[in-house]
């Protein structure tokens, strides 16, 4: 089978290429992986621009609200067919990708009612596995973006099961939001070569994200 198949132009991004791009994006923009209510939650970041400041969680009787932090490591993607192991019940099928990352969830735990002068960070690092599918948005002739949407997250070894489900739901929600901030232009997926009007794709197979189209 030719690369262009029934179409005229093909662009394929290998999973290693996408991981290089994700590494570049999140290294240049660390605040898209780091969220916290104040610098005192978890380790002090390199600079103010390396995290996104969030409001505290308001709760009646908690002065100033609850401080917390969420930090993801740079995710790594595996396109179908499966190369990286996945914990059950996750299963990678054609058209999908899997994703591996770690998340640090930290809470500034206050032991007295007075928020000032107290608070000890309590955190946990969890390994996260997920599956998802690429989502395309066409914005004009030859123009559009591809982003990564998650379908399911699995975090192993949390008991009881309802707690695992709760944490997985939380992480899925957060990670989906993180990934939505990375919408890669078609031009980036083909390194500027051979502009195409998208006719088919994105498809994930042969360890690649594939776009098919016609000349603009």
């Amino acid at each position: 089978m030719s690369l262009t198949e029934a179409e005229n132009i093909f662009a394929g991004l290998n999973e290693q290429g996408l991981n290089t791009i994700l590494s570049a994006v999140f290294t240049a923009r660390p605040r898209q992986l780091n969220y916290r209510t104040s610098p005192s939650v978890a380790a002090v970041p390199a600079s103010a621009s390396s995290w996104t400041t969030l409001p505290t969680i308001a709760f009646p009787g908690v002065p100033g609200g609850i401080d917390y932090a969420v930090r993801f490591s740079i995710p790594r993607v595996d396109f179908f067919p499966q190369t990286q192991p996945l914990p059950p019940p996750l299963n990678l099928v054609a058209g999908q990708f899997s994703l591996q990352t770690e998340v640090d969830l930290t809470l500034l735990c206050s032991r007295s009612a007075d928020r000032e002068g107290s608070g000890k960070p309590v955190g946990v690092r969890l390994g996260v596995a997920a599956t998802g599918q690429p989502v395309v948005q066409v914005t004009g002739p030859g123009k559009g973006t591809v982003s990564l949407d998650l379908l399911a997250v699995e975090i192993v070894d949390i008991t009881p099961d309802p707690l695992e489900s709760l944490v997985e739901c939380l992480v899925l929600t957060l990670l989906r939001a993180v990934l939505s901030s990375v919408a890669l232009p078609f031009e980036s997926l083909r390194a500027g070569a051979f502009s195409l009007n998208l006719l088919r794709g994105p498809e994930t197979e042969d360890d690649q994200l594939k776009l098919y189209g016609a000349a603009v």
Partner: peptide, 9 residues
């Protein structure tokens, strides 16, 4: 396999 592969017919 290269990171990015593009082709035209």
């Amino acid at each position: 396999m290269p990171d990015i592969l593009t082709a035209v017919d």
